[in-house]
């Protein structure tokens, strides 16, 4: 049975999507059966995993996306003259990863997911219900969330056992952390049969600016907050490297990105091991 983890922070630009894509590739490399779900209408995770070219082909072919799960039907298409009930298997893109022998699957997103945001009534449990039908086929399910509290965030909570929180060590970015904590606490209060925990906070230096004194000050402040609330902070920081945006453009794992420095690959690999331990997963040889 899969462990489901949402990458979430109420602040945008902290590197959630880049981290989600790289975690997915790292898990795939280690033969961990992984499904990634893009829950952001901007669809950047889908583009980073598939590459823009393949993503556009998916749109042109009118393949169903995560939006169909929330709306509970597939619209009429070339292969069907009337709406059809949606099966989650119709929405999964198999073998979406980088390597030729990949087992990484993807549920992509598209801009039309914003319709769900506009009409959210009673849709918050549909993703969890759909995932429950296939969760025994995976070891890890990663959900990449949009950075605002919405039906999509709530859907991610309903489906998740853990929340992984990337934090950019800058003052304004760290404010997203207490907002997220409040949001999770409210969810747990309303759903007291549901176990949802923060598996850890990772300092994600998504820009070179966060590595100076301001960054250090923010790190200290987050550590104090984390201690007060009993949150785990990962020892390994994901430091800024120009190879991360390049990996997103090329649709590659960080270690396969052209001209990547060895220490960048090594650092991410160390963080990945720490992350796996925090959710009780082990590398599969």
């Amino acid at each position: 049975m899969a462990v489901t983890v949402s990458l979430i922070n109420m602040k945008g630009g902290v590197g959630k999507t880049t981290l989600a894509a790289q975690l997915a590739h790292a898990a795939d490399r280690q033969n961990i059966r992984t499904l990634v779900v893009d829950l952001d209408p901007q669809s950047n995770l889908s583009q980073a995993i598939l590459s823009p070219e393949k993503y556009v082909k998916l749109l042109k072919d009118k393949k169903p996306t995560v939006s169909a799960i929330f709306e509970s039907y597939l619209p009429p298409s070339n292969s069907s003259d009337s709406p059809k009930p949606v099966d989650i298997k119709d929405v999964i893109i198999k073998k979406a990863g980088y390597w030729a022998d990949t087992t990484l699957d993807l549920i992509p997103s598209r801009l039309e997911l914003s319709h769900t945001l506009k009409n959210p009534t009673s849709k918050e449990r549909r993703l969890a219900k759909a995932l429950s039908k296939i969760s025994d086929q995976y070891d890890l399910i990663l959900l990449d969330c949009a950075p605002t509290e919405s039906i999509l965030t709530e859907a991610a909570y309903h489906a998740s056992r853990y929340a992984l929180v990337p934090v950019k060590p800058e003052f304004m970015a760290t404010i997203g952390l207490p907002l997220l904590a409040r949001s999770i606490n409210e969810f747990k209060y309303e759903n007291n049969d549901h176990s949802l925990d923060i598996c850890g906070i990772v300092f994600n230096h998504s820009s070179a600016y966060s590595e100076g004194p301001e960054g250090e000050k923010s790190i200290k402040e987050v550590k104090v907050e984390a201690k007060k609330n009993g949150w785990n902070i990962y020892n390994t920081h994901v430091r800024y490297s120009a190879s991360y945006p390049k990996a997103a453009r090329e649709g590659t794992p960080i270690g396969s990105t052209s001209y990547v420095r060895w220490e960048v690959t090594n650092e991410f690999s160390t963080f990945f091991d720490e992350f796996l331990k925090s959710i009780g997963l082990k590398t599969i040889p």
């Binding site: 583009q47 590459s51 823009p52 070219e53 993503y55 556009v56 749109l59 042109k60 801009l111 453009r249």
Partner: peptide, 15 residues
């Protein structure tokens, strides 16, 4: 062949 490929271009055209 995709040597003239632009990630932004194809997505922009589609959107």
């Amino acid at each position: 062949p995709s040597n003239e490929f632009s990630g932004l271009g194809v997505i922009s055209d589609q959107i």
